[in-house]
Design a protein around this nucleic acid. Structure first.
Lengths: 216, 216
DNA sequence: TCCGGTGTTTTGTGATCACATGAGGGGATG
DNA sequence: CATCCCCTCATGTGATCACAAAACACCGGA
């Protein structure tokens, strides 16, 4: 079966489509830690050959979304506790700064949108929808950080999210919670009040709370 | 010419060798901003086919070391001033934290080694060796940050170095300086004294000094 | 029942090729 | 002399194949 499908630009190229799909899957915790991916398997799923599958995989490995065994096998990372703590510290470092930069640009429309996103989070927590919870939680944070006008910094934060994706899934899957994240309310209150120290503290607390549930 | 060279592991694979060589070249400023790379050109230089050249290029693009035009052409990034400021802020954020974490583990042997590295920097500044200066300067910082025992954080800092590589070259190439970086002495003094606030300030100053020379 | 060896299958790596597209150059026209 | 157009060549993309090595399953012996 010889098919030459000529994509017009990189955004619609096969390797990019594979990359974006897998990236979203991993970031949202749809794949558990330690799961292994094969080039031919990916190619079969997406209806492409090994070449674009390999490029997508390499890209994900470069971002830390996948790790390679010594023989070239790729799998989602199974993070050690030290690594989890380090990535949480990175999240705190980057996201506190992003929130602080976004604060002067956060108007009422944004705060209202974040509030409505938070409502969706509450629903998903009640429905025990772990993947939906992770996705909407990231959406909440990203809505704020986009206002920071700092694309490189946001990209780094997303890379950390990506590395934590499978672990977050495993964590929240074990977790039995019924209430929405408490610190999101603090974030919204600090945003309304224009309280920068309060915002920094609220973001830092929100980011590190998940870690505390794991370490104990 | 059909040759099948079977590498035993990923570290000795052709694509990895190409990747590491290009990465070092970009990080050290051996390639100016805006220079374009072609798959066949890379393959010709390294004696490999387009396949490993493409994998190396994708990896470098994922790390921000290269940027893609809308038609898939890769070139070293020509950063806007906003982006340069953002990356400098990221360096400050990450490296201050790395230095702070390394401080309790910085023994006399490390400080002496950093001092001798600083001597080499002084020589290279006098010889107007821009590439050597960048390389040795990074070695100075990395020697310290390795003690922080935070591999993910160090990897992020190196990613920022990588993105700034070509721009740094262009910057220091225009720069006419005769003395070694002043803030390195402050860093060493703070390390000897165990002075954490002083160390944070010294690292932040050292990281952001290059930016100031550009913005004015 | 558990362990080691052997043959088979799966998997990653790299080379090569066809194809469409974009870039660059040369010439004609204003 | 500048500008637009067309043609050619170079370049990225994706498919396919050969090969080696790792993983796996199976089986016999202790």
């Amino acid at each position: 079966m010889i098919q030459q499908r000529p994509p017009v630009d990189a955004a619609s190229a096969a390797h990019d489509r594979v990359y974006r799909t897998l990236r979203t899957r991993i970031m949202h915790g749809e794949i558990g830690p330690g799961a292994s991916l094969t080039l031919r398997g990916i190619g079969r799923e997406f209806g492409v050959s090994m070449t674009p599958a390999r490029e997508a995989m390499r890209r994900l490995v470069a971002e830390g979304a996948l790790q390679l065994s010594n023989s070239g096998r790729a799998s989602t990372p199974d993070l050690s506790q030290d690594r989890i703590e380090e990535l949480a510290a990175l999240r705190a470092l980057l996201e506190v700064e992003l929130a602080s930069r976004a604060l002067p640009r956060a108007h009422m429309a944004l705060i209202e949108r974040m509030h409505s996103i938070n409502m969706v989070i509450a629903e998903q927590v009640q429905k025990r929808d772990a993947v939906g919870y992770i996705r909407t939680n990231l959406e909440f944070h990203r809505a704020l950080y986009l206002r920071a006008q700092a694309p490189a910094m946001l990209a780094m934060a997303e890379t950390v999210w990506l590395q934590l994706g499978p672990t977050m899934r495993a964590l929240y899957g074990r977790l039995r919670r019924t209430e929405a994240p408490q610190y999101h309310r603090l974030i919204l209150a600090a945003l309304k009040a224009g309280d920068e120290p309060g915002l920094r503290l609220a973001v830092r607390s929100d980011v590190t709370q998940g870690l505390k549930l794991l370490t104990r």
